[in-house]
Design a binder for these strands. Structure first.
Length: 778
RNA sequence: GCCCGGGUGGCGAAAUAGGCAGACGCAAAGGACUUAAAAUCCUUUUCGCCGCAAGGCGAGUGCGGGUUCAAGUCCCGCCCCGGGCACCA
């Protein structure tokens, strides 16, 4: 049982409470069912807010983080979450992050960690680089109104693209246990696209322009080749100073604006490329809508059959040449067509391929290109390598030393961890804070011993959370990240629970890390978690709770006012766990009322002397009890709709108050015991208290889960609704398994039903055994 | 634009395999207890119509069609809301 570990921001919020209340109910239920449950907790303790606190309040990030951890831990304990604190980890401790560094070195050895200069997203507000995943609508994910800028920097990358195909294919393994929504988002993020790469050669040069296309069948309609402004060849093709400025402006403008509705602009480079199929010379353009980061950073423009190319070419007067016609129609006229024809069809005006259907032409033309050495079938992914460098202090130092002679040298394993120096003054200026710590920076090259300098950037905190759950299995290991044999016993995670917000970032990095660890021979599982559950958000007045909106409900206040059990019960009752829920305080009081009512019932009736019961009352009480046990067990075993489980307990209690005087001592005791056990996963404090009141000892959640007896849960008579022409007209009671003839006789004799049937012809009698009778009359 | 969710009383919701729509809770109204209040308990509460009343009749799950003895649930076509992706060649 694993819930996503929190960032120690200071206080728990209601989203945490909900997440952990769900997980805790399940963990307790599984214990009671006799499973050996590992239910750990830790802290995603590196990150920007610690530095911001240092900046704003002068707090030391280390001290700030650990005082937050202490507070949040006490909150969790107060809420009564049954967590194994012996396995607690905090990612900012060297005992933990040294293994981040160790993994980095392993990836470096295998070429999975590399350094390159790249244009990266720079948030002026954070003064740091952002991962693509952290850019929302062209703005920073933390400063949603701050546009991201482009800067070229030397950055460390992890080669997630090396696992792109596997990350996509293995989604199959997750289909039964992960929400379809999350898988869809991941598929989309990985973005596999099948097509071909084709070279357009440059006259009088060895250079070629390689383009990626999914529609090689349209290649005879290519009327120009377009390069992304950042494309390396642009520097060679464009020599004029004015043009170069224009390109620079294009890049900056693209970075400033929302990419979606950027106007397509471009210009002719003055050069031509040779069409590989028909040898035509086509002009080379440079345009802002071609992305360097996707495919080859260059395209062939086929305006007749692509919407973007059409828009661009029409705007710049580049010819439109249709080469695909609909299966049942003629070829369009390029000069007059108002929109491109983007469907598949029949290839025309394309030399020997004319007459072929698109699908066939795609394969054959790619094979031809391949055979003649100017192209190949190709698969492109949208997912990019993971840039992990952050110009930040409060993160894992990247274990690299730069030596003037040897270059980037990995720190030897035995020298790990590269410790983060403590007691630093944070200024919030752009460069990495570590640069200003000479005792950290200056170090001998591990290879040649000459003076070198350390890498001053730290790792993205998503690194910390990519593998933390493995560490829970063996949290104090100081010779390896964990013992593989111990991990093999527990993994994969049976149930992971967390917010939908992590559907791509954390969950895709974790999957990547798992695959890398598997290839390192550390683990045997292919995926980190068999089952994933994403709980809904906790809202207040229809929007997410946030300090800026001033609508935050503090769990501490709730616990002070109503107690932990009420707080937990409410988060489980207000909505099914996967749905967003709106916080409603008066509804919280309802849960409190229920708990007091239940408490009163049991304390008043526990060990009640005498035997005032009746056979009938006992039977009715036990029937309702077993019915409730069946309902709740069922909810736990299938879809976790604890709102209905709690409603069932309420129903039971309502009925018990009706039956109170008619229950024997024996039945009453059994009922009180079982109700207490049924309550235990949701409201552990109250349940424990009641358990002791009932004269028992020891933890209530170490008791076996009360299993229902199907016979006892059964009603004696079935209450069967009777319809006439599909409209409800009455009810009858009949023994279970009554025959059609019997039922029909009873139904037709029924006073309520008679008037609707009399004088009419019975066409048909529909009978669902024990459930419904419908008489069709004319 | 594409891909996911979702739309049921005044509100949160329930109806798990096509079979009694609105369980359970909140809020509201009335009543009991109380000097009073709180707490607690009881009653009413989808809408419209008929009835002094017990009760009865009709409509009703975003809209329009369809399948079926029977549709909140299945099919077709729309509308609205939320989320994700969005020049991905």
């Amino acid at each position: 049982m694993l819930e996503m570990l929190p960032y120690p921001s200071g206080k728990l919020h209601m989203g945490h409470v909900r997440n952990y209340a769900i997980g805790d109910a399940l963990a307790r239920y599984m214990w009671m069912r006799g499973y050996n449950v590992l239910h750990p907790m830790g802290w995603d303790a590196f990150g920007l807010p610690a530095e911001n606190a240092a900046l704003k309040a002068g707090r030391d990030p280390y001290e700030w983080t650990f005082s937050n951890i202490a507070h949040m831990k006490s909150q969790m304990q107060r809420l009564g979450f049954a967590l194994d604190w012996n396995r607690e980890i905090a990612s900012c401790e060297p005992e933990y992050y040294r293994w981040n560094q160790w993994f980095f070195l392993k990836m470096f050895e295998r070429g999975l960690a590399y350094r390159k200069e790249a244009l990266l997203n720079w948030c002026p507000e954070c003064a740091t680089v952002l991962a693509n995943e952290q850019v929302v609508n062209g703005c920073c994910w933390r400063h949603e109104t701050t546009p991201v800028e482009q800067r070229a920097m030397q950055q460390w990358f992890l080669k997630t693209t090396a696992y792109a195909a596997e990350l996509l294919n293995d989604i199959k393994e997750l289909e039964s246990g992960w929400p379809e929504r999350v898988l869809a988002m991941q598929r989309n993020w990985i973005g596999r696209s099948e097509g071909a790469e084709v070279d357009f050669s440059l006259p009088g040069s060895a250079e070629k322009i390689r383009v990626f296309t999914t529609r090689i069948d349209t290649i005879y309609g290519a009327t120009c080749v377009i390069l992304a402004p950042e494309h390396p060849l642009v520097k060679e093709l464009v020599t004029g100073e004015a043009e170069r400025l224009e390109i620079k402006e294009m890049i900056d403008a693209a970075a400033r604006q929302d990419l979606g509705n950027l106007e397509k602009i471009g210009f002719f480079s003055g050069r031509y490329a040779i069409h590989p199929f028909d040898g035509r010379e086509v002009p080379i353009w440079i345009a802002n809508f071609v992305l360097l980061g996707y495919g080859t950073g260059a395209i062939m423009a086929v305006p007749a059959h692509d919407e973007r190319d059409f828009e661009f070419c029409r705007a710049y007067g580049i010819p439109v040449v249709p080469v695909i016609r609909p299966v049942d129609g003629p070829l369009a006229d390029g000069d007059t067509m108002a929109e491109p024809y983007v469907e598949y069809g029949i290839v025309e005006n394309s030399g020997e391929w004319s007459g072929l259907p698109s699908a066939e032409a795609r394969k054959k033309m790619a094979a031809f290109a391949s055979a003649h050495g100017f192209g190949t079938e190709a698969v492109t992914y949208r997912i990019k390598d993971w840039g992990i460098s952050r110009q930040r202090y409060w993160g894992t130092p990247i274990p690299i030393v730069y030596c003037p002679r040897c270059g980037a040298v990995p720190v030897p394993e035995e020298d790990l961890p590269v410790r983060l120096p403590l007691g630093l003054k944070i200024t919030g200026q752009g460069e990495s804070p570590l640069k200003r710590v000479p005792s950290f920076m200056n170090v001998a090259c591990p290879k040649c011993g000459e003076p070198g300098t350390r890498e001053s950037d730290t790792m993205d905190t998503f690194v910390d959370s990519s593998w933390y759950f493995y560490r829970y299995c063996d949290p104090r290991n100081d010779t390896a990240p964990f013992d593989s044999a111990i991990v093999a016993r527990w993994f994969p995670i049976d149930q992971y629970i967390g917010g939908i917000t992590h559907a791509i970032l954390h969950l895709i990095y974790s999957r990547f890390w798992t695959k890398v660890m598997r290839d390192l021979g550390l683990i045997t599982n292919n995926e980190p978690a068999k089952n994933l559950f994403t709980q809904g958000m906790v809202l207040k007045d229809g929007s997410a709770m946030s300090k800026s909106k001033g609508n935050v409900v503090d769990p501490d206040d709730m616990v002070d006012k109503y107690g932990a059990d009420t707080c937990r019960l409410y988060t489980l009752f207000a909505a099914p766990p996967e749905k967003d829920m709106d916080w409603n305080e008066s509804s919280v009081e309802g849960q409190h009322r229920f708990l007091t009512r239940l408490f009163r019932f049991i304390t008043c009736n526990a060990g009640r002397p005498g035997d005032g019961g009746s056979r009938d009352g006992d039977r009715q009480g036990l029937r309702k009890l077993h019915h409730t046990m069946r309902k709740i067990t069922n909810d736990f075993d299938s879809r976790w709709h604890f709102n209905t489980s709690i409603a069932a307990l309420m129903e039971l209690l309502n009925e018990l108050y009706q039956l109170e005087a008619r229950l024997s001592t024996k039945a009453m005791n059994e009922i009180c015991n079982c109700v207490t056990l049924l309550l235990a996963p949701f409201a552990p404090y109250t349940a424990q208290d009641l358990w002791e009141t009932l004269g028992h000892e020891g933890p209530v959640f170490r008791q076996p889960w009360p299993m229902f007896d199907p016979e006892l849960a059964k009603e004696e008579l079935a209450e069967i609704p009777v319809q006439v022409n599909g409209k409800l007209r009455g009810h009858i009671q009949a023994p279970f398994g009554s025959s059609k003839e019997e039922l029909q006789r009873v139904v037709l004799a029924n006073e309520k039903v008679k008037p609707f049937v009399q004088g009419k012809q019975i066409v048909k009698v529909v009978l669902v055994p024990d459930r419904l009778v419908n008489i069709v009359v004319k």
